[in-house]
């Protein structure tokens, strides 16, 4: 699934080709997907025995593992809040997850993503049920092939559910993008490298709430509206897969 590609070539490769299918012109992406098609997605809940909750999520070549510890006593104590739980979030990429080795020290990018992921989770976790505690959410990107923050959020919400922490809804996330002028769903690394825009979106699908939204790149107003519609479509599919993954663990146990 994961394909390496030399980034040294100066000219931008063509990432969309147009094909006639049933008399209609269809955009075909470099890996054969149509613009509204997700990559193969795999989810597994409860993969780590030590964590209170955990999940492994794959979007194509992207593989992220998330673990939740808590609610547990806040250490150091002064970080605790009297009326709610503190969420501590770490999004981190393994040094071997990328083409070039990534330094294990947290980068500015990881610090920013940890923040926006935490803010997304704050909006669904019922933190007021666990005052003076912390809920730790750790996400490790094991292999990166685009859309790692969205896969991390999807995994984090599964791990929270697996830990039995009360939530208003699950969080499902996907990145949409604009590649060669076409709005596409679930962009991978090659597309991201040459995309005109990359837009990660996370939602609480059942409540129709947008929890994370970033746009890196340029879009017209119409393109943005279209990209949002496409994101919702992908998110609803991912949401179904999440529920299936949770059911699979607990039904087989039961």
């Amino acid at each position: 699934m994961y394909k390496a590609m030399a980034h040294t070539s100066e000219s931008k490769p063509s990432l969309i080709r147009w094909e006639e299918r049933d008399g209609v012109k269809v955009a075909i992406r470099h890996d054969g997907r149509t613009p509204d098609q997700l990559r193969p997605i795999r989810m597994e809940v409860g993969v780590l025995s030590n964590a209170d909750g955990s999940a492994l999520v794959e979007y194509g070549g992207t593989r992220v593992i998330a673990a939740v510890y808590g609610p547990r006593e806040a250490v150091p104590r002064h970080v605790a809040l009297p009326d709610r739980a503190v969420i501590r979030c770490r999004y981190h990429m393994a040094p071997f997850s990328t083409e070039e080795r990534k330094t294990p020290a947290p980068t500015r990018r990881e610090i920013e993503l940890s923040k926006v992921i935490r803010e997304a989770l704050e909006a669904v976790v019922l933190t007021e049920l666990f005052p003076r505690t912390t809920i730790d959410v750790y996400m490790e990107v094991l292999q990166s092939d685009g859309g790692t923050r969205t896969a991390a959020l999807t995994a984090a919400s599964l791990a929270l559910a697996d830990a039995g922490i009360a939530m208003r809804d699950l969080v499902a996330a996907v990145a949409v993008g604009k590649v060669d002028g076409v709005i596409v769903l679930d962009i991978d690394e090659i597309e991201d490298n040459y995309a005109e825009a990359d837009m990660p979106v996370a939602m609480a699908p059942n409540l129709n709430r947008v929890l994370l939204l970033q746009l890196n790149g340029v879009m017209t107003h119409e393109e943005f509206t279209k990209a949002m519609e496409l994101a919702v479509k992908g998110i609803n599919t991912i949401y179904k897969l999440q529920k299936e993954a949770l059911r699979k663990k607990y039904v087989s146990v039961g």
């Binding site: 803010e119 704050e122 909006a123 939602m203 129709n208 709430r209 340029v218 107003h221 949002m228």
Partner: peptide
């Protein structure tokens, strides 16, 4: 007149889908 970037930031809340579209407009 194009959208050159977006970031949802701060707070612990959400925007509905419609609120996102309205905010961008």
């Amino acid at each position: 007149g194009r959208v050159a970037g977006i970031q949802k930031t701060g707070g612990t809340g959400y925007l509905t889908y419609d609120e996102v579209l309205r905010a961008v407009s």
